[in-house]
Amino acid sequence: MQSLTDIQNRAFMAIGPSRIAALSLLVLMTKDDGEKAQTARQLSIDRVTAAHEMLGTKLPEMLRASNHSFPPELEQQRQACFEALTPLIEVLKEPGKAQSSEFSDHCLYHLEPLVSSFLKEMTEHLKESQKQLEILRQEDMLKAIANAEVVGKNIQLIAFNASIEAARIGDLGKGFTVIASEIRDLSGKTQKFLDNISGLLRQ
């Protein structure tokens, strides 16, 4: 399972370049078909397509796989960005549309602010969510260690009682006394090990 930080990085790397790619497409769609222009146009197309796929399917899938979801407002922003990129995908099919002033205004004044705002909000949300997950994970680990410490103490008590009972029956219990002593020693070492882990987690 990916961490939310990993998801944030992958999403940012896929979506971020679409802002420049959209503006590049705006210019390149009206340029000549020289080799450099074709290469630059294809790069912009790849970036816009990658951002569209990330916003539409990949990001929601990664979030579901990590048992996480955006709050409603951020989810609306994701959907708005996806919808804002869709006209660019259409332009890739019909390059003539890139020459309209309406398309230019869309890229400059609608798409860029939407994507920039979404990336900022997404990054802050996923960083904070990952931080909270790590705090909860640490608390769960401390609880698990505390439970193990209780079990260790009970084992020591049982081993001590077993030693007493073995001593009562004299020579017949000597072998059992040795075993009980070994159990008590191992339990003590385990207790120290758990204490060390607990101390590291609390730092």
Rank of each mutant, 00 (worst) to 15 (best):
A146I: 06
G152E: 06
K174D: 08
L133C: 06
V115E: 00
R19P: 00
A162E: 08
N154E: 12
D33T: 14
D105P: 01
M62F: 08
L28P: 02
D105C: 07
E73P: 01
A14Q: 08
A166P: 04
R184C: 07
K97A: 07
A21V: 00
E53T: 13
P95N: 05
D6F: 05
G56Y: 01
A98D: 01
I7T: 02
K143I: 14
A146Q: 15
H106E: 06
S129G: 06
G173M: 01
F176Q: 11
A21L: 03
A37W: 03
K58H: 10
H52R: 11
F118I: 05
I158D: 02
A167M: 08
I183P: 03
T39C: 04
V27S: 10
E139C: 05
V115C: 04
Q99N: 06
S129C: 09
L88N: 03
Q99E: 10
K174R: 11
I7H: 01
K120N: 09
V91D: 01
L111I: 14
L111F: 04
S104H: 09
Q132W: 06
C81Q: 02
G175E: 12
T57D: 11
S44R: 00
I89D: 01
A146S: 15
F103Q: 06
K31M: 15
L126E: 00
F70N: 05
L142A: 07
Q156M: 12
S117K: 15
F160W: 07
D185H: 09
L63N: 06
D195F: 12
L136I: 13
H68R: 05
A180F: 02
L133W: 05
S163C: 09
M122S: 12
A11E: 05
P72G: 02
E53R: 12
S198H: 13
K36C: 09
L74K: 07
E53V: 13
T86M: 10
L28D: 02
R184T: 03
M122Y: 00
Q76W: 07
E112M: 11
T57C: 01
V178S: 06
E121S: 14
A21Y: 04
E53C: 04
D46M: 09
E61H: 11
C107T: 13
K127H: 14
S44A: 15
L157E: 10
D6Y: 05
M29L: 12
K189G: 02
F12Y: 12
Q2P: 15
T86E: 12
Q99G: 08
S100H: 07
M122F: 06
E165F: 09
I183A: 08
E182R: 12
A144H: 09
S163D: 03
R41M: 08
I197A: 08
R137C: 03
L92D: 10
I89K: 05
R64E: 10
L142V: 14
L43I: 11
T86C: 08
Y109I: 10
L55W: 00
S117F: 08
D46V: 04
E165K: 11
A144L: 15
I20V: 11
L126C: 03
A84T: 10
A11M: 04
M54C: 07
L88T: 02
Q79A: 14
T177F: 10
R64N: 07
D32F: 04
Q76D: 12
Q130P: 00
I45S: 06
Q130N: 10
P60N: 02
L85A: 02
L186Q: 13
F160C: 07
I45E: 06
M141P: 01
A84K: 05
